[in-house]
Amino acid sequence: MQDTMSANSATGSASSSSASSASSSANSGASLQSTFLQLLVTQLQNQDPTNPMDSSQMTSQLAEINTVTGISQLNTSLSSLSTQLNAGQTSQAALLINSSVLAPGNSITVASGKTNEFGVQLATAEDNVQVNVVNSSGQVVNTLNLGNQLAGTVPITWSPVDSSGNALPAGNYTITATGVLPTGAAGTATALTPGVVESVVQGANGAPSLVLSNGNTVPLTSVAAVL
């Protein structure tokens, strides 16, 4: 009887000491595993021989603590990999400085006698793809009919004229792209406008973004074409 009480007392003392140590240490997978193993060894040393621990529960607990440690190590590895990938993408983005690219946008500048390059990006094939050119007064001055197009980037080289073929005055214009899905529903055509890459900045989640001459800042992954 006294032996049993001594064993229970030792178990309680060891558990209290280990819990105190765990609360003062960092909550990392390694420290949790170390604390768990200390508690387990103490419990095995002081268990009642007539009522030993259930081996299946012990195995389950070991598996759980190993899973926690593995997840912690995986998160650290993924974080390191993400940092390396972002650094590589930033180096690639820097090579685009002073290059003209097509990226999502709606504003184009018309200069006398100069053709414009822009485009449309389609996630899926669409029918009756059109680009409307709107002046600063909100009037549609021309509509470019591109017909049926497959998914991807559709580049456009356009001489700035109105629907009657008259040259448009210099200034800023807005373009919007529309299309129809084969099902008859409205498409999701995206207008692409040109811009010269002026610099590279850190965007969301550390990924690089490009600062363009047209005033837009776009993620590197949104660049549809390099002109």
Rank of each mutant, 00 (worst) to 15 (best):
L78I: 13
S80Q: 05
S80W: 07
L81P: 02
L81Q: 14
T83H: 05
T83S: 13
Q84C: 04
L85F: 06
L85T: 01
N86L: 08
N86V: 11
N86Y: 06
N86H: 07
A87D: 05
G88N: 14
Q89S: 12
Q89T: 05
S91Y: 06
S91H: 02
Q92C: 03
Q92T: 03
Q92E: 13
A94Q: 15
L95P: 00
L95F: 12
L95G: 00
L96S: 12
L96G: 12
I97P: 01
I97H: 10
N98L: 13
N98I: 11
S99A: 14
S100W: 12
S100T: 15
V101T: 06
L102V: 09
A103S: 14
G105D: 12
G105L: 13
N106T: 12
S107I: 04
I108W: 14
I108Y: 14
T109F: 14
V110C: 13
V110I: 15
A111S: 15
A111G: 11
S112I: 09
G113H: 07
G113Q: 12
G113F: 08
G113A: 13
K114D: 08
T115D: 09
T115P: 04
T115V: 07
N116K: 04
E117W: 03
V120Y: 00
Q121S: 03
L122V: 06
T124W: 14
T124Y: 15
A125F: 11
D127M: 09
N128H: 02
V131T: 06
N132K: 10
N135D: 04
S136F: 03
S137F: 11
G138D: 08
Q139L: 15
Q139W: 15
V140T: 10
V141R: 09
V141M: 02
N142L: 01
L144E: 12
L144T: 11
N145T: 09
N145Y: 01
N145V: 08
L146W: 04
L146E: 05
Q149V: 05
L150H: 10
A151C: 10
G152P: 03
G152Q: 01
V154T: 15
V154Y: 02
I156F: 11
T157P: 00
T157W: 06
W158E: 00
S159C: 01
S159K: 09
V161L: 03
D162M: 04
D162A: 06
S163A: 12
S164G: 07
S164R: 10
N166T: 06
